[in-house]
Design a protein around this nucleic acid. Sequence first.
RNA 1: GGGCAAUUAGCUCAGCUGGUUAGAGCGCACGGUUCACAUCCGUGAGGUCACAGGUUCGAGUCCUGUAUUGCCCACCA
Length: 864
Amino acid sequence: MSRELDKAYDPSKYESAIYAKWESSGAFKPNPKATKAPFTIIMPPPNANGDLHLGHAMFVIEDIMTRYRRMQGHPTLWLPGTDHAGIETQVVFERQLAKEGKSRFDFTPSEFYDAVMKYTRANQHNIINQLRSLGFSADWSRLKFTLDDDITSIVYDTFIQMHADGLVYRANRIVNWCPRCNAAFADIEIRHRDQIDPLYYIKYGPFVLATVRPETKFGDTAIAVNPKDVRYTQYVGKAIEAESVLGHKFQIQVIADNHVDPAFGTGAVKVTPAHDPNDWEMGLRHHLPVVPVIGTDGRLLEIAGKYAGMPAAEARVAVAADMETKGLMDHIDLSYSHSIAYHDRCGTPIEPLVTEQWWLSVDKLKTAAITAVKSSEIKIIPARFEKVYIEWLENLRDWNISRQIWWGIRIPVYYRVGNSAAGNADTTKTPYLIAKTEAEAREYYGEGNYEAETDTFDTWFSSSQWPFATLGYPDGPDFQQFYPTTVMETGRDILFQWVSRMVMLGLYRTGQVPFRTVYLHGMINDEHGKKMSKSKGNVINPLKMTEKYGTDALRLALTIGITPGNDGALSEAKIEGYRNFNNKLWNVARFILGQLPDDYSPAIPELRSPADHWLMSRLNTAVTDVTGAIKDYRFSDAGQQIYSLLWDDFADWYLEASKSSPNHDLLVHALETILTLVHPIAPFVSEAIWGELPGRSSQLITTAWPVVDTTRTKTVLSVDQIREFDEVVAIVREIRTTRAELGLDKVTAVYASGDMWSLNGDLIARLARNLTIESRNESNGLLIHSSSTKAWLEADQKAIAQTIHRLHKQLDEKRAHLASLEAKLSNAKYVQSAPAKLVGETRTLHAETVASITKLDDQLAKLG
RNA sequence: GGGCAAUUAGCUCAGCUGGUUAGAGCGCACGGUUCACAUCCGUGAGGUCACAGGUUCGAGUCCUGUAUUGCCCACCA
């Protein structure tokens, strides 16, 4: 026989060797011989400098799909990659520099870029190895990095094409400026936090205006009131005179704009187009001048006179104090609560200010992206996110794709400086020149001194091209074979940042959707459903869990009980539970292998007993259900089906039943089926056991997914035999329950007649334990209701007395049930409208209930 | 301010297009030295499915409203 297995499954003994074998056998690569439709997933690239967290561990969903399709014979490609993660990495790197007493300004942008690249290259293997340790069957030979030359080249081409199509433009606009990062960010990269700040009521000629930012008053170019506000009608369209905190008098115009809420403050507002998004909009509507007060360093500019050079927060206090001294302050509300914008990555308050940026016109792109989902060319799971996606896109405004950060893909633009040599006066009209490289710039625009653009792309601009860029658009064989990809599986938190933009850019560039289905997973919370955070100390480190309980245990815990789009709760106890499941599977295998003869070789099983038929029917049902569940993205259901199949059906009933005369072929067949079904979720333990099976040289990872085969004569099911074992199970359960409730130890069952008992008596006795069976025509014992023929459980008078109460309770339940069934059947509308099959079932049930009530009545009459 | 989700057993969650008497795991109680497994085996208790209406022969499931919790978006001079 095969060698005996260890008493418990030890994941650490198997995992790395199994993974190495999978990979070296080429199983992770798409099978060139597979003829079905290709199945493709592009892995959302983790930060190349990051550490594995539960968000990455959720990629197990991708692995499940990939393994399932691979086993079904599809050419599968799960393409992994890592992300340079622009600002996120830059912030981390700068923190390190700060520890060494340095900053990025000790470097030129290109030196800085090289330093971060070196750091990234040194770290990248870390996250990759961590992903591999989770058993992910991705094709590492195709690993991509967002800064690989072929990727950046495609990103450049996209930009160039967009520019040629008139979708890209430069403009001065108000943006979310982070003074720490010295860069602009998109709205989506901003978080708002509520805080309490002083609300200053300042005097402005005849007006009193409420503001939290008196330091920006040097940039005020109007006072705005609501057009319906009669208090101020007299001033609208006129200029008023006011006194500056700097001492001089100045004129300022009064405008009427619907944006102003007459109920807030005094109903009049100072308008600072350069430093407030709403004021900027008002400025556009009323053609107001834009006067910057704060520079990109967050300090006040020359226009602020004696406050120039002060950081904004400091200037606010100083200006307010001086205004008070000069009698320009009406009063201050110290308990004003409002929300303030912070940069999501570094936590610095955002300074809205006007800068020149590169913008992408999104109108055409978003229309196509909306249509793709509305027309179901792309399906989002769960479907409710389709609405969210569409609404977000409908409200999307032009996208600022430039960042003044240094770690990223440089925008392919050059400037000619000191260009008298070129002698082309027109260059003043075209201040930027599109070119990928300086050499290309020279080639197109002539010799001269060129300076590269220092702005880089928003990370999301490049990562939105990830699906087609990684596949080698436009000519790569992978692109030809695997695009559009099948599924995009990612966290629901980046539906906007990433998914929607991949659709826009994918459609723009390739004319096809980047993926057919979007599967969104929720966030993984702690055991009480609370968000994990370092400060709460409730963070679960996936690698610690896999080390302790095995990778499969974590994978099962992240699959079962977790539904798409919804947050899931994870506890160590849950993971431990699935470690136990893996051990159960191991021990089932250990038991089966232990009883196979030395020279055993597997054969198609023959069904020889009711239990055999019963098991085969369970296996068939499970194969159908698990296949259906995975196909429908119900991975939790699939996992639960397998769990119950192994533990309840196979281990607790069939294996116990089989002990008297084991059907080796069926035991092996069942084990193999279960291993195959569970493999996508728990690949290691299943492959480890598979490797111990007799006559199996191939790996489970590339074994065919099971199908229900009803044509094999040896395995044609008999409904009667299945029913017979079901009855055995019911009888055993009833005997166990009765005995436990009555506190009996050894019991005797008596049967009057029937094949059921004569054929299955030994089996029942063994499964029920401590049971003797006798054949007699009558008994004063307790009737065994589950038995289709007359049978009793012998018990003494004391036990019988105890049981009368229980029988009454059962009778009450049965009668209540009968009443509900009768109500249904006497309802003409029910009989008429409900499906015939259902009505039939109700009738059968009714008859059965009547019969068991009769039995109970008889028994009670005897006892009482 | 707008939207989405959740509310089912002590805890964490399933419950697909409405259809028998609502499920799982953990926890709990009781009983087990069964030769695969104590990471185990057996038995049990525990739910008027948040609340109020409605549609329907039939509602945990659909509709309306309310409450609580969480999340998203927008805005806050």
